[in-house]
Amino acid sequence: MGTENLVRKLPNDIGGDEAGKIERVEHELLPWEKRCHALADVLDFHKIINTEEKRRGVESLGAEMIGKLSYYERWIVAFANILFQKGILTPGELAVKMSEVEGRFSDVPDTRQS
């Protein structure tokens, strides 16, 4: 019961679903979110990742990640996955680079929420 809908409708395909009241939320993009948006546009201009590939990349994150990650978190993870699939980056290279970037903030107290 109900499992056929998992096949018929992928996680992004929510048009027509039951849903609650529209909360008219808005927020100013965080600096990294704006950079992520600009990155998306530049990736599209260069045909490295186009808009439809991005959408499918988000969809293929699966329902749990789509539900729990924020909008631009989904985008950047989708970009990384697509770049791995295309052989442009490897997960190892990204991990090394992320450590390097994090190291630039080594003298900043860690106030992040885990």
Binding site: W32, L69, Y72, E73, I76, V77, L94, M98
Partner: peptide
């Protein structure tokens, strides 16, 4: 410190 996804954006 930048969060995990912020770091990922910069790294990519």
């Amino acid at each position: 410190k930048p969060g995990y996804f912020d770091l990922m954006e910069t790294a990519v």
